[in-house]
Design a binder for these strands. Sequence first.
DNA 1: ACAAAAGTGTTGTCGATACACCCATGG
DNA 2: CCATGGGTGTATCGACAACACTTTTGT
Lengths: 257, 257
Amino acid sequence: MRPERTIQDIVQEGGKYFMPSVSLDCVIFGFHENELKVLLLKMKNMDQWALPGGFIYKDEDIEDAATRVLRERTGLHDIFLQQFKVFGLPNRSDKKHHLNIMKKDGIKVGKDHWLIQRFITVGFYALVDFAVVIPEPDMNSVSCEWHEIHSISELFMDHKDILDNALETLRLQLNHQPIGYNLLPQKFTMPELQKLYETILDKKLDRRNFQRRMNGFGFVKRLKETRKGGAHKAPFLYNFDLRKYKKALQEGLQGGW
Amino acid sequence: MRPERTIQDIVQEGGKYFMPSVSLDCVIFGFHENELKVLLLKMKNMDQWALPGGFIYKDEDIEDAATRVLRERTGLHDIFLQQFKVFGLPNRSDKKHHLNIMKKDGIKVGKDHWLIQRFITVGFYALVDFAVVIPEPDMNSVSCEWHEIHSISELFMDHKDILDNALETLRLQLNHQPIGYNLLPQKFTMPELQKLYETILDKKLDRRNFQRRMNGFGFVKRLKETRKGGAHKAPFLYNFDLRKYKKALQEGLQGGW
DNA sequence: ACAAAAGTGTTGTCGATACACCCATGG
DNA sequence: CCATGGGTGTATCGACAACACTTTTGT
């Protein structure tokens, strides 16, 4: 375990234990009420939202650092995450802005301070079960909330660009990564799975053909229970046969959508 | 243009103008005599081969830095390149080894020297037309040569891992990136294109079905010339209709292989 | 003339699409 | 009881795999 740090400690001493010039940002996807959502932080003293992110300890693997950030924001330990791109434009960070934040927090820093150097950031996307996440803001933010993916228009720095890239990656990897498994609860209904696919692909699919195809793959198992409570006919619940699912993904699910 | 540097200047002064802790490495693919090849550097004072790589100037975009490295090793200006992964294990660089190299070159450095800090590296892959490349070693190497992809067993540091990842990425992106266009000369034959696909996918394809499918896509155009010189029947030459090719790739070429 | 490589054609099968119909449930 | 959503069945079409045959060229 890494020690808890205060914001003052990080600003003043972070240069000693964090890697210089490298950060990471996480696009955390969740699925709830038939909508794809992303976990965002409302920043202190600002009217902007940002992706959860962090720095990397000098002796820490980058993936471990991402896992740590994920754990801190969601409370979850075992999370599916995947690095997808480095964002490294020289002017991507707004140095004036950083200085302002620190001023407001009453922290004075020199021009060669580690936090106002150029930073590149490694983008990760993570897939979580919405229901079990307990969102927790970090030191720089006042709240941590889910946002519907299509209602996000502007974010801190280049974070909107990072988000768009994550979504695009998700789309491309839909046939190669266990996306359904990680975004849905253990038990789910066919219409839910379909909605997930439709949201990610941003297109409508035929209900019956979708079901036939999914069943044809052989990695979903229908249970004897149904999802009660909703109006209309109660749909059956399914779960994934993880063995078969992963095996099928290795080859990539055949055919387009 | 960036200035030419001596190795001494880089070792002693590099910390001033390069980003700390971040490097890049390029997997440069070429296709020749029906074989997929990679451009490697034979390192000075060592029995190992390495991927071409470099550092990033403090005010330089990472993609530009990669382009610069590519230009220096191949002589080419317009190169297709794509970032594919960050390699960031804490122990990936061998500090002792770096110290040794510098010693052999008669350079003394302290323990806090910028070159023996932990480095993460951004992996790029590049696709070039084999015929027009003029391989050029860098300051740390004695030669720069093409190596057949399957005959490479061990490389410097984690470069073999980087190479394997690049190849895997190439495979996954075969239906989404203009891989044929960039690896083949302007004019090429169907059997050549097929061999390229077979090499990347590592499986045999049916000659006739391959041709029908390629023609069906509509982005290859058969010319009236044939490839003379070889034995047996002369195959027709083709070229890409870049407009249609890119359009088709946007959707992704349908169907698996 | 023969071997080897390239061009062209045909057929069967399987999977995706586009439908229509039946069942269950809440208002 | 009816609107709505969910489950199941079927016909059609197209794409791909598997195959055979013809054409060209060098030796």
